[in-house]
Design a protein around this nucleic acid. Structure first.
Lengths: 359, 359
DNA sequence: ATCAGCACTCCTGCACAGGAAGCGCCAAAG
DNA sequence: CTTTGGCGCTTCCTGTGCAGGAGTGCTGAT
């Protein structure tokens, strides 16, 4: 016999298997119908052979525990956030993935060469698969490796800096130097920086630059000092900008729980604002495996009526990003969870140029 | 006395000044209220001192001409697309710009260093100014100038190509070479390409590459042939991707004419699809000055209930892009038009690094 | 040509009633 | 003690009828 402890305020109460079974059927039914579920329907749906009256008693208990809620006296019950929580944590039976679909997914991802592109494709895949919004953060390696730098003179003292990290990620920014440099000087500086720092992690480079600037003050020649000075300008604020790729956000417009104009606007504003979403996704990077925020659990008002199913993804055992799906609280978790899970694994594998994809 | 010819089917009819005056007041009233305008309101609003009954007669004429339309028998009148068209073409009195705001605009734009950034800022400005959606295409110069190229070896035969055009636009792509090259060989190839083609326009480079590949077949050494081959791979498909930056699209969610979920979804889908919008904006590049599409005039279903006010913008007398504002058909054209106009001019000026901004 | 007046149409809001869904409670059965 | 059928109650939803308001088209007078 399965028992689950549910805390309510200072009380802790035991829920027997039957109540849980009923909660499960209720949530499933509500997810598929979108209508408050009444005792009669529940009586038929569950294979417990209980009369509606009995079920009403159980429902009253569940309501006391804050797991379900009636919109009004004579409506059926709707799961609350805690109800959903209990459901996804303990009751949910995830659906196995269709093999055909799996290979299709894998094929689509593996077909991408450009990793930048791949992120977009993954996001799109999530959106299409789930008919909700897909989101994938750009992969970020804490130990990003500096590879190569190049300086190109622009007008006046402006210099276009191009630098490459992690084999194939290209960044560029414009810096303003204290005095104008000739192309030859810039070339020398680039050569110097490349020879000094290439292959080291960005953090290491940052530290080395500061140290070298202090230590070498007197010893080395002016050209090298200039080079190190420019390097400092470049790497100082080169914390790779956190960003994500969203897809299928328009899918969310169809859902009745987001029909309210203000809600929709708040949500989309959050999408374009980005910072809040990034913070939220950052929290998911720490956790391993699939993580779920239901409704207000996220703590961000814009997501009050949404759920977020995420998973971190890793390249060669290092967590580099997060992907997930955003949809209404009333979503088919049992399908979404495996989708997110497998997409995270496939994306990680596809981003790893050496290894062959697992599974 | 002002007369305007209006074609209706095979007939052409003259509208006298009074009718036009009334149409003008009607459109203005409707734009500010959003309610169908009745004869009584019109009688008060216009300073023509006409009784509602007379106005009703005029309205009947305007309705026959297809300039206004009643939602139902006992409602007031609403302008049709042709009505709006006549209004913006002949009746509209554009509002002069607030000088204070103008300098603020100019300051914001001029403060941007990175031109990529500037496009986003301009789009945001348009959105904030108009409380609708702003759109700016990335500047595209037909005569993009090739500046510099760099090859970095990746795994196997993959090579990361970084090239710079127009002083400061950085592009990168990954190409797959026929055989692996050593870093030194790649460096040589880059040097060769830079010395051969730097400073020429992309089109010229494309042509030159093809020609050189044919002509030099026997004469030059293998290294140079390899270099030219790679150059061909790079420049072949480097037609700068058309793209635009959108801002404030969520502003559109507030408008009642876009309250319909499907309409909103269609519109947003078009935004993210991009191609349709790009085609539409491309049309605006040909025309000079402010151009307006009202409702179905655009020919794109997604924009059926929207108007688009655009202007091309130029850098040193060459048209390089388009910017504009998207909003409901019922928008305050007399304010939007000068906003779009001035933003286009300021953006063009701000993008020109040499010249001092006019005005 | 303009206008006042009148009848007509259509939208809107409101109140009301009937019906359906579903609950809570209670008392009887297992 | 648990389960169940039954009853009354609450709430929502839908349709209907009615009154008020806004605005039109038409007609006949100025």
């Amino acid at each position: 016999m399965l028992f689950v402890e549910v805390g309510v305020g200072k009380h802790t109460q035991l829920l027997n298997e039957r109540s849980l079974q009923l909660l499960k059927t209720l949530v499933e039914r509500y997810i598929s119908d979108g209508q408050p579920v009444g005792s009669r329907a529940l009586s038929k749906d569950s294979d417990l052979n209980l009369s509606p009256a009995t079920i009403r008693n159980v429902m009253a208990d569940l309501e006391d525990l804050g797991l379900v809620h009636s919109p009004h006296t004579s409506a059926g019950r709707v799961p609350t956030v805690s109800g959903y929580r209990l459901f996804v944590d303990s009751l949910l039976t995830v659906q196995p993935l269709n093999v055909q679909e799996l290979t299709r997914l894998q094929g689509t991802l593996a077909a991408q060469h450009d990793p930048g592109n791949m992120i977009g494709v993954a996001s799109r895949l999530l959106a299409d698969l789930t008919q909700m919004a897909g989101v994938v953060t750009l992969p970020r390696r804490e130990i990003a490796c500096f590879r190569h730098i190049e300086f190109l003179p622009l007008s006046h003292s402006r210099v276009l800096v191009i630098f490459v990290t992690n084999e194939q990620e290209v960044h560029n920014k414009i810096i303003i130097t204290a005095k104008p440099f000739s192309p030859a000087e810039l070339q020398q500086a680039a050569n110097y920086i490349n020879s000094m720092y290439s292959g080291r992690s960005l953090n290491a480079v940052r530290e080395a630059v500061v140290k070298d600037l202090r230590d070498d003050q007197e010893r080395v020649n002016q050209g090298m000092l200039d080079a190190i000075g420019m390097a400092r300008q470049v790497f100082n604020h080169s914390g790779q900008k956190d960003d994500y790729v969203l897809a299928g956000e328009t899918n969310l417009m169809g859902f009745s729980e987001l029909a309210d104009r203000d809600r929709l606007k708040t949500l989309f504003d959050a999408f374009y604002q980005k910072q809040g979403v990034i913070d939220l996704l950052d929290q998911c990077m720490k956790a391993d495996g699939v993580q779920i925020f239901i409704g207000e659990e996220s703590g961000y008002q814009a997501f009050d009526h949404c759920s977020l199913v995420t998973s971190s993804y890793s390249v060669s055992d290092e967590v580099v990003g997060v992907l997930g799906v955003i949809g209404p609280t009333r979503m088919a978790y049992e399908k979404i969870i495996p989708y997110v899970d497998i997409t995270a694994k496939l994306l990680g594998a596809a981003l790893n140029p050496k290894a062959t994809p697992p599974l």
